[in-house]
Write a protein that binds this DNA or RNA. Structure first.
Length: 340
DNA sequence: CATCCGTGGCA
DNA sequence: TTGCCAAGGAT
């Protein structure tokens, strides 16, 4: 009987699996569901390199799901600062509390899917990796590998249905967790978006796109929209070794995160250029930052000896600003304000 | 199905 | 420098 795609891939994985902090070695028992869940949420649209230090820090500070469930939400938000997509952090707390209340992680894909922050991908990944369930795990890596393996010409995202059917067809009944991680490792290291390394690929003999000569052109993707440019201001108000910080609204860009006050810029429009209090404002420069769907030119204005502005906020000691948990945009602005 | 939601690395 | 891309989810 001929070796299947999954046999070849699992053999390759046994020899070449990446060693990652949240991962068990091939053939050893599954890692704790808490570690699998935490890493999978952090890895949503985020690179392995970016996740590693956050995973280690979270695990050291909150060693299990009960500890995380007991943490104040704002502590988790601050610890997440810099990792992006901050709704993940709020859903992480909600999910931890639901799991702690339940007493354990659900083990089936459909039950996992009901938890906050767990969509089709993450629920399948946890079921397969933590609980050895057969689940069809489809992320961007799997989409790319499968689109090439079967030479699926239909563009994304319309091709997702066909890709799922093809992925299902090659997913084995046993070792589905290792299979999923092997597909992702293959996509990350061999079957890469640009210049796939087919000479090193354990699936090259079966790959239809390679047989046709130009696997790198798949999967076809719909063209992207241009990002509008927005302009805004942010305000560094300093008084007696402290800076005035606010908490952003729970929804929208950087929702729920601690921040410098600003003039109300957002994805749809530029800011009002109205400072939060009258006074002498000096420009410290401009921060350029690109979000998922718009770019921002943020002018940083500073005021020394600023008086207490109207509205909610707090004076934060500047020498411990690192612990405020500012998202990257405002961390850049703060750095600029202090450099001048 | 489309839009909103971060960030850093890389060619 | 600019654009592309990454272990997606919620609405």
């Amino acid at each position: 009987m001929a070796a299947t795609v999954s046999d070849n891939l699992l053999d390759w994985y046994d020899a070449h699996a990446r060693e990652l902090p949240w991962r068990a070695k091939p053939g050893t028992p599954s890692p704790e569901p808490y570690r699998v869940w935490l890493s999978e949420v952090m890895l949503q649209q985020t690179t392995v390199a970016a996740v590693k230090p956050y995973f280690e820090a979270f695990l050291a500070r909150w060693p299990n799901v009960e500890a995380l469930a007991s943490a104040p939400e704002e502590d988790v938000m601050a610890a997440w600062a810099g990792l992006g997509y901050y709704s993940r952090a709020r859903n992480l707390v909600k999910c931890a509390r639901a799991v702690a209340e339940l007493g354990h992680f659900p083990e089936t894909e459909s039950d996992l899917r009901r938890l906050p922050g767990l969509g089709a991908y993450t629920a399948a990944a946890i079921a397969a990796i933590a609980f050895e369930k057969r689940a069809v795990v489809v992320d961007a890596n799997v989409e790319r590998v499968v689109a090439r393996l079967f030479a699926i010409e239909e563009p994304l995202p319309a091709a997702r249905k066909a890709i799922r059917i093809a992925a299902d067809a090659i997913t084995p009944d046993m070792r589905a967790g290792d299979f999923a991680q092997a597909m992702m490792d293959l996509g990350a290291t061999i079957c890469t978006a640009r210049d796939p390394r087919c000479l090193l690929c354990p699936l090259s003999n079966a790959c239809k796109a390679r047989a046709e000569g130009d696997p790198g052109r798949l999967p076809v993707k719909a063209p992207k929209k241009a990002k509008p440019l927005r302009q805004g201001q942010t305000y560094w108000m300093e008084n007696d070794g402290a800076v005035w910080l606010v908490r952003r609204p729970g929804t929208g860009i950087l929702g729920g995160m601690r921040a410098l006050p600003d003039d109300g810029w957002n994805a749809r429009s530029s800011g009002s250029m109205q400072a939060p209090s009258p006074g002498i404002w000096e420009s410290a420069g401009v921060v350029r930052h690109t979000f998922t769907h718009f770019s921002l030119e943020l002018t940083v204005l500073t005021s020394l000896g600023a008086s207490q502005p109207d509205g909610q906020g707090e004076w934060w000691p500047i020498d411990s600003l690192d612990e405020a948990g500012l998202p990257t945009l405002f961390a850049k602005a703060a750095r600029l304000a202090q450099s001048g």
